[in-house]
Amino acid sequence: MRLPTIALTLLLFAHAPAHAGKTLDQVRQKAQLACGVSTGVIGFSAADSQGRWNGMDVDICRAIAAAVLNDPGKVKYVPLNAQQRFTALQSGEIDLLSRNTTWTLTRDASLGLHFTAVTYYDGQGFLVPKKLKITGAKQLKNAEICVQSGTTTEKNLGDWFKAQGIKVKPVVFEKFEASIKAFFSGRCQAYTTDASALAFIRSKEAPNPDDYVVLPELISKEPLGPVVRRGDDEWFAIVKWVIFALIEAEEYGITQANLEQMKSSPDPAIQRLLGGAEDSGKLLGLERDWAARAVKAVGNYGEIFQRNVGKDSPLKLPRGANALWNKGGLLYAPPVR
């Protein structure tokens, strides 16, 4: 009696779902995508008063749920802080990490993870009072710059001005609120943090937004994108290509509104993307209309951008580097072909 039990237990353990190639099966079996998000970053992932999540990172989760499960609502959002995010992914608690995470060599190569694609090109910028008539970061010679301590922001600031041979005086604060208060009360000539946050700080926290201006330069590269576990190439490909499809949809002018008309478009590229002429989904292990479902759920990349961080949002960020490659930006998706 005993031995068979042990053998059975061992067998069960041996058959316990290994991670390789199983994420898609698991997601389908649970009929739910476990998506790691932030505990609250405006425009990227945040819960509203009814506990509904929205933001760019959240829309990526919804798009993937739509492509895989045919229902953008079947997402379980797991709010994670910066320390927990990678562990949660490694331990299998989440299927996908979509939480404003910068793609770096160290993270990509040493944490057992794969960065899939870039969904937002961020960078560190400066906010200055208009009356100083500063138009570029290089004019900040001998300026006092308010910055939050213990962030990569502080390090980037030191690195960049050192490389430029310009002396600045960083004024370091431990808390975000304190650094903001200090800047707006005139303690520093400039404030620095990620550009996506700067515009919002200007519009919401400044006593009078028109007295301040965000400088055009960015002094660091912060490419943000979703992350998956290593060892499941199938799942890696799905996440990657859903994002590419959203970008391609913008390129071909396919929107949430005109999706149905576009399905009868004569353009072979659109036919391929929307699953008309060819079944591109089969190669990914998905249904034929995977990309159409994603666009139907959240719109194309441009729509996602404008709704959450762009002109239709409180953040009002310009497309900038996040415009398409043929419109002066960096977004370039490999062809769905």
Binding site: T39, V41, I42, A46, A47, S49, P79, K204
Partner: peptide, 24 residues
């Protein structure tokens, strides 16, 4: 809260951190 269980204190920051209208 540090282990992503959002009890009273944690859910407060969940409620406010990402809401532009109410954050302050």
């Amino acid at each position: 809260t540090v282990v992503s269980l959002y009890e009273l204190t944690g859910s407060l920051s969940l409620a406010l951190a990402g809401d532009p209208e109410w954050r302050s």
